[in-house]
Design a protein around this nucleic acid. Structure first.
Lengths: 344, 344
DNA sequence: CTGTTAGCGCGTTCAT
DNA sequence: ATGAACGCGCTAACAG
């Protein structure tokens, strides 16, 4: 079943069928009608690889995420996809917006980029924090450059800027600073910090913000009060127990994100400590479940859906990229019940 | 930059380069070495559309989900992808496992299936509940049949069986029954039920299980005690207020899933009711956050990751499909603090 | 507005 | 074990 079959049935040339299907060319209404009817009767579906080969472009758009099971990425991916999925692709049809889960692995990130390059993807959106390993940064950078050179639009969303691409970057440092300042303002002086994996930019920036705030208020940054772990609940649980072991006098725990904060809350409760009476807890991201924690979680809201939608539009060329190719998206401090004044 | 360029540099024919890259054919070790070096030096990347066209197959595998921002789907998608992503694709390389977010829209589901058909996808995995609208069921069915006929492997994961495909289906009905039986066993007689969207199979099956349990214990199924809504927190919140309005004497609320249950908890708290002292609450799925609710949520655990992994392996042909093409995956009742005996 | 022609880059015969 | 030749199905120039 090929274009030629449709053409024969509709009594036109294959080229005309192609023009009808792609809609990028004037075709007489009556002809179009006839062709579409033939397409329908034959149940014809365009051969994607063949058109991609002939046209040297494809309808595929890749979205790379670090962890698809984490709503942080799910929300962004959903927003990106909704801006891309609509009509406007080749073949009068839709684009195939597609989410690739790297699982946080540098190798898989590169593999997916290669695969998308191989498919001649129309655009690629990379989301979330990057790995800071020098070799990997170089490798990704050169991959992105090749993609850009090949005509693929590359957008970073919630990821630090890179010279090769347009970036919408989150103000993790500023958010981290304001969050810790909020706690300091409440009177806290001994704050535990649960950071994410060491090599992630998100981890580093949020931690730097925290330290900025401590320094600005003349509070010593005791390294024993910082623990690194994964961005998941179990890590938050473990890290909190470790923090309490190292220094039972802490009055607040700042977590790398909301998921980790939930683990921290569980650990505190299991240790017989009340929130926020004994220990305050703060998260980051403001994921949907954060407001349901008891007490509700103080956190920094990141406009994930808005940023994702914008990244999607830029990737589609439907919105102007920001001046200089970089835009910083700020977070908003959400003060809720999980933080309060320290015990006496 | 094409195969021919690599061939020239390696002093061999294009055919040989193709054979080295695809590894499906004997090639002298020395020749292979030379070719691979040329590939490396030229930074050559195979043209996906061209190979797919010539070979009439592609490395693309599609995973359809109803809501990518919902961890229920994220967890399954992650497991599926991890089984697919590995080596074993064409071109000695990896497969491009790709997640498509339908957002619960029938149109987008069909669109994505067409897009994957157009790309000549190697396999497609559809996850989660299906829409019961007759026209849509027919449309999807015929689409799946065409995909199967075209050589695409189609697997359903957490979705009711269809004649066109292999299915791993969740025992939603049994899980729903056991959950409600648990509450009845605690002494509850007036149970509110928050169901999902009307037209979803998951909704219907869970609700049927609930009703089975009521009937088995001679409890009248008062229709005023069932409310339908979306599978999200806000819907759970609203629905709970509605249930309380209709019948303030209910002693338990069973929710369509954990996310909805969290909304229910919030509504009960905001209404001044204690959980489980005044009203018990139960969810479904056992998503990671459910254990962090206060009190922890009684729910039915579905082995999402295991089922996803198995679906992925079947889609790759690395595991035998179940006998008869259908396997039912059971849920496990997790009794936690959110359910208890009714007040006096 | 429509038909004709010539590739797009690769896999796969068929030879050797 | 390797090379030559053909065609996969479609799009894009170029005519008309």
């Amino acid at each position: 079943m090929t274009l030629a079959d449709v053409a024969a049935r509709a009594q036109v040339s294959p080229a005309t069928v192609s023009r009808v299907l792609n809609g990028n060319y004037p075709v007489a209404a009556s002809t179009r009608e006839r062709v579409l009817r033939a397409v329908d009767e034959l149940d014809y579906v365009l051969n994607g690889p063949a058109s991609a080969l002939a046209a040297a472009t494809s309808d595929l758009v890749g979205i790379l995420v670090n962890d698809i099971a984490d709503p942080f990425f799910g929300i962004m991916a959903s927003a990106i996809q909704s801006e891309i999925g609509g009509p406007g692709g080749r073949a009068g049809g839709e684009r195939l917006a597609v989410v690739c889960n790297t699982g946080g692995s540098p190798e898989r990130e590169l593999t997916y980029l290669t695969l998308l390059q191989r498919q001649r993807a129309a655009a690629v959106v990379l989301t979330g924090g990057a790995i800071e390993d020098a070799a990997h940064v170089t490798a990704v950078g050169s991959k992105l450059r090749k993609l850009v050179d090949a005509g693929t639009r590359v957008v970073l969303c919630g990821r630090p800027p890179a010279p090769e691409a347009i970036a919408l970057t989150f103000d993790n440092r500023g958010g981290g600073r304001r969050l810790t300042e909020h706690l300091i303002g409440l009177g806290h002086r001994r704050l535990g910090y649960i950071a994410g994996p060491e090599e992630r930019t998100t981890t580093r920036h949020r931690l730097e913000g925290h330290r900025d705030a401590l320094a600005a208020h003349g509070i010593e940054d005791d390294p024993r009060r910082t623990v690194h772990g994964r961005y998941d609940r179990a890590a938050g649980y473990e890290a909190t127990l470790e923090l309490l072991r190292r220094d039972p006098s802490i009055t607040a725990v700042v977590a790398a994100n909301d998921t980790v904060a939930l683990g921290a809350c569980a650990a505190l409760r299991d240790s017989g400590l009340r929130i926020p009476d004994d220990v305050s807890v703060a998260g980051f991201d403001d994921l949907p479940f954060s407001i349901d924690a008891v007490p509700a979680l103080t956190t920094v809201r990141l406009p994930l859906a808005e940023a994702g939608a914008r990244a999607g539009r830029i990737a589609m060329g439907r919105e102007e990229p920001p001046a200089g190719g970089i835009a910083t998206v700020g977070g908003e401090l959400m003060v809720r019940g999980s933080t309060g004044a320290p015990r006496e």
